[in-house]
């Protein structure tokens, strides 16, 4: 758990950290489209260069980064293996047994999938490593604003999201504390058969839910006492500003897009 980087925030001060969170969210989203546009080796080389450049600009050490996403490698390898073994016939057939074919087509496809997975995971890890959770929430809320026109309660969703994010570490501490207390009373977590393990979760889950309900009640009363009525009609303290460096990232993105469109085999 402690070595798992995906979804964590690493406080550093780089140009990537200072970018507007709205910008980073949109870039990450568009980057995924870019990854699926690439369809030959040259275009992947361009993408890898851009990705490594982004990681370098974030001043996070590449070795630390790669170690952090290593736990996800099994998921990737599983997908790649499926692609490799069960591809439809096409090109040269290297090996054949029952319904399993390893074909030239399959090998190339598996290679593409591997790189696509890796690139997308690296970029989204970079997003969470370089952006504070609250900034992600503010950015998302701001990006969802147009949805107001189709009656989506954007402000309420934004409030829920920021409260949820705020309480993730608190509830994790709480869970750890309750687990320790129950261990001290003789509960063995993660031992024995499946049924026994599931049963041992009860002394953790019941208090955790109770504590979450109590917290929710206390928090809602405290919010009302501070004059909260509804999510609309509120002003904003966290103002996001679009800077020149944000525009520059889009220029770079446009260059990347153009290069990939040029290299792409239609």
């Amino acid at each position: 758990m402690s070595k798992f980087l995906f979804g964590r925030y690493l406080p550093l001060d780089s140009i990537v950290h200072r970018l507007d969170p709205r910008n980073k969210l949109m870039l990450s989203f568009c980057y995924i489209i870019l990854v699926f546009l690439a369809n030959n080796w040259l275009s992947y080389v361009i993408l890898i260069a851009f990705t490594l450049g982004a990681i370098r600009a974030s001043t996070i050490r590449l070795g630390f980064f790669l170690r952090g996403i290593r736990p996800l490698i099994w998921l990737i390898l599983f997908t790649v293996a499926l692609q490799l073994l069960f591809s439809p016939a096409g090109g040269h057939v290297y090996w054949h047994w029952a319904f399993i074919n390893i074909t030239q087509f399959g090998v190339i496809n598996a290679g593409y999938i591997f790189i696509r997975f890796l690139l997308i995971i690296m970029m989204s890890t970079l997003l969470t490593l370089s952006t504070q959770p609250l900034d992600i929430a503010t950015g998302l809320a701001s990006l969802m604003k147009p949805l107001r026109w189709v009656k989506v309660p954007v402000d309420t969703l934004a409030m829920m999201l920021s409260i949820a994010l705020r309480f993730v570490p608190t509830l994790m501490d709480e869970a750890q504390k309750i687990m320790n207390a129950q261990r001290a009373r003789g509960v063995d977590f993660g031992e024995g058969g499946l049924f026994k393990q599931a049963k041992s979760l009860l002394p953790l889950m019941v208090p955790l839910f109770m504590s979450a309900f109590n917290r929710a009640e206390d928090l809602s009363i405290a919010m009302e006492a501070r004059g909260y009525q509804d999510s609309d009609h509120r002003s904003q303290y966290r103002i996001l500003t679009w800077q020149r460096r944000d525009t520059v990232t889009w220029v770079l993105f446009a260059v990347g897009l153009a290069l990939i469109l040029i290299c792409r085999r239609w």
Binding site: A181, Q182, A184, R185, G186, P207
Partner: peptide
């Protein structure tokens, strides 16, 4: 560790959160 856990009783801070 199990015999040790019985030998040493622990009352944590705000132990009421362990009731279930």
């Amino acid at each position: 560790l199990k015999p040790l856990r019985q030998h040493v009783g622990m009352v944590f801070q705000f132990p009421e959160s362990q009731l279930f």
